[in-house]
């Protein structure tokens, strides 16, 4: 079985797995991370998002063999080493922007990906950036509000 050396949350991780294994399963099943979630396996819902070199990307169809030395950040990696939450994480808590919270990983990662590119997005830009991310509980309005608050905290 081939071996992959991955840069995950700034730590080099070594994994032996088949070349076609999607990154999601490497993160969850081999590295026991909880952030990225299995939602559809079809890149249709965004539950499995991580940041790859700072960009929010779905991982459920992305073969591990295509990652190389790209920098992967999961929800776990957003929290600083001192335990300080990222502004987006903080805003989700403050706004209670979840019901079941299963989509929360993807929402947070998509929001961080957006703020990396555009630190002061308007409402339309936020919604556009989160368009792939589905939520069934209907927490959308709180989620968009949380992203706005997080963006404001950067100013």
């Amino acid at each position: 079985m081939p071996n992959y050396n991955l840069n995950i949350n700034n730590i080099q991780k070594s994994v032996d797995t088949d070349t076609d294994t999607p990154l999601l399963y490497v993160l969850r099943d081999y590295l026991e991370l909880n952030g990225p979630k299995f939602g559809c396996g079809l890149a249709q819902c965004g539950s499995c998002m991580v940041l790859i070199n700072g960009r929010a990307t779905t991982t459920c169809m992305l073969p591990v063999s295509s990652i190389g030395q790209s920098k992967i950040t999961t929800l776990e990696g957003l929290t600083g080493t001192t335990g300080k939450l990222h502004a987006v994480q903080e805003a989700f808590v403050k706004e209670q922007a979840a019901q079941c919270g299963y989509c929360l990983n993807g929402m947070v990662m998509a929001a961080v990906g957006l703020l990396n590119k555009n630190p002061s997005p308007n409402e339309l830009e936020i919604k556009k950036a989160l368009e792939l991310n589905l939520c069934r509980c209907g927490a959308h309005s709180r989620i968009v509000r949380a992203v706005k608050i997080a963006a404001n905290s950067f100013k």
Partner: peptide
């Protein structure tokens, strides 16, 4: 406020899918 949301944003094991 719900304390579980604070755990969710930090990717703490929350769901049955996270049981190992």
């Amino acid at each position: 406020p719900r304390p579980d949301i604070e755990k969710m944003v930090q990717a703490e094991a929350t769901y049955i899918q996270d049981l190992r």
